[in-house]
Amino acid sequence: MSSTCSCSKEFVDEREERLTEVIEKYRGVRGALIPVLHEAQEIYGYLPFHVQKRISEEMQIPMGEIYGVITFYTQFSLEPKGEYQIQVCLGTACYVKGANLILEKFKEKLGIDVGGCTEDGKFSLQACRCVGACGLAPVVMINEDVYGGLKPSEVEKILKKYQ
């Protein structure tokens, strides 16, 4: 995770500059951390480590506090999000109906881990706690679409719909 990656250097630098502007804008403002994180996430799509580190150093806020805020509010994300965000429910009801097998299938088909994003930026994968649709267990959500009563064998077919 480095800003010196040569292939996208210009792109990265442009984002870095925008982050500098955001930090400048809020310099000396009390309670500025949340708005800064918001704007940083708008720039990067998520809040990677090096962005947290810059905010920490330049705003003199400990890393732990920044990380604590990011992980407290669901609106912030530590991982890049894909165009399609897949959420596999691992609540108790889904779990007993084999949700973990479905999760494994997604991992295998996409070649990513939980929290990861495919290289083309198309899919990201998350496991979540109960979404309150236990009657449909096991449940998977892809953006706004809800899939219930899934079997691992159906995973491939579903992914095709979004490709």
Binding site: Y67, G68, T71
Partner: peptide, 25 residues
């Protein structure tokens, strides 16, 4: 760690049932 020592390497992270006192990540 944070207020007295100003080292601040542990903090409250995550939320709800997942809340834990820990260093980042």
């Amino acid at each position: 760690c944070k207020e007295v020592q100003t080292v601040a390497v542990i903090d409250v992270i995550e939320r709800g049932f997942d809340t834990i006192i820990s260093p980042i990540y």
